[in-house]
Design a protein around this nucleic acid. Sequence first.
DNA 1: GCCGTTTTCGGCCCGACTGTTTTCAGTCG
Length: 571
Amino acid sequence: MSKKEAVNILNEIATLLELSGADFFKVRAYNNGARAIESSDITIDQNTTAKELSNIKGIGKAIAQKLEEFLSTGKMKYYEELKASIPSGLMDMLKIPGLGPKKIKYLYEELGITTIRELEFECQENFLIDLPGFGKKTQDNILKGIEVVKRFQGNFLYGEIIGQAENLIGEIKGSKKVIRASLAGSIRRKKETVKDIDIVASSKDHDSLMNFFTTRECVMDVISRGDTKSSIRLESGIAVDIRVVDDDQYPYALHHFTGSKEHNTAMRSIAKKNKIKMNEYGLFKEDKLIRCKDEAHIFSQFGMDYIEPELRENFGEIEAARDKKLPDLVGISDIEGLLHIHTDFSDGSMSASQVVEYMESKDFSYVGFSEHSIAAQYAGGLNNDTVHEYFDALDALQKKHSIKILKGIESDIMPDGSLDFDDGILSLFDFVIISVHTGFNMDEEKMTDRIIKAMDNKYATILAHPTGRILLAREPYKINIIKVIEAAAEKGVFIEINANPFRLDLDWRYCKQAKEAGAKFLINPDAHNLEGLSDYTYGVNTARKGWLEKQDILNTYPVKKLEELLKSRKE
DNA sequence: GCCGTTTTCGGCCCGACTGTTTTCAGTCG
């Protein structure tokens, strides 16, 4: 039993309670409890007691006891009973935009609808039109919502969406009606997946700006249209929400709609303690507006430093801002070179010389190749012979170019924790990336031991994509990531932030903890084609969300210092 | 269900839009 499972079960209980029509505050208490566990630094396992749990703010007697039962036995009676009382399809129905727990509960009780498919059928048969509180438009919206769920499951990769978002915000900023405008919401916070695109703009003429917004060429569908708020859908299926305010309200609105919800709630409660009301229109002391010219000014009202949007997840940024202890986050321009690149020596689609030319054109000072290794024959991995051809080719390339070329390998971690090349060959590389590509279905203990054992090899320098997750497609393998992080820090193995937009692994949620354990990181593109090289910027986002600074990231270092660090591990 | 420098009971953040209503409930962020 891990922290993650505890968090998941509390969130699931909250959802089930919502569907069962429970008191709103009870639902929120479970959501808050999940949040509290997630951000607490206590380790959670089968021996964690209710007493320890209830020390966490947000966990009371009732939740603590239920969790203790869950952790020690793997079961929770309360949850099992709740789950049994509610058809599982109702949970899926919550994903339909426009349909919430109240209506779902009503449809279930009145029409016996328990799955999205049934709901779709009933809509097509016009059964919803005459229900009290429903009607033709509601039914149409539900059908549209079902389409969205079926096609996109409601989530989008940041990397797939950011281009569309930037185009649209560019158009809006270009409108003469706009004074200030910005992306907001999760996309401004640079979360790895987003549900929609949020935009905040200020204008003297709301109506014209709304017309401008809802008639852009990229708009497929207008979902709602008001004077302060409108929603559209793009061809990709993602919804875009815009909020238009007067310019003196802009800083408050931008902060409010950037979120996160948890950050805002925490900010509001601080405001309340200072007898200040905080909402999207301003800060009010005894109903009098406190004028703020920008977001930094808002934070300063509470004695806080400016908090970068990436950090606004209520992961301690508010306390740090108050204590002047916010990190100086790593930036894209800090990156000096890139490692973890595959070429046509293994499964990449570009040649090493193309990569070198590209990297030189972008003024990077080093480039590190890392082909797949002997066990990864599915990916054209190098073997004991071709590895020497690879060295010769890179040596020849180095003679023609001034950018420093580092020779690496991505060596597979075998199920027993050994590496697939023997030490004699591994010792020849400038760096050895180790990673799991097979045998994903081990239990947590075995997988954790497997990876920790692999890190005992003194030639292993970088642990790649530590959890193996593929966003929106594959869960992380079962692993005690905290143990792995601590072992990496202790053994001096560097942790990769894999910057592929489908991976972004190590997850930012663990970066801060890893840093505190003493770990160092590399932001690696894991590129297989030339476009993939620029993915490193997504990795920088992840590092920033994980509170990392320039000195935490090895590929911000000059090449000499990086080489020393890579060598020191062998010695 | 949680919490408490006024509280062990009575609060719990707040506002916009839609659609179905004739003043409001549900949903969303």
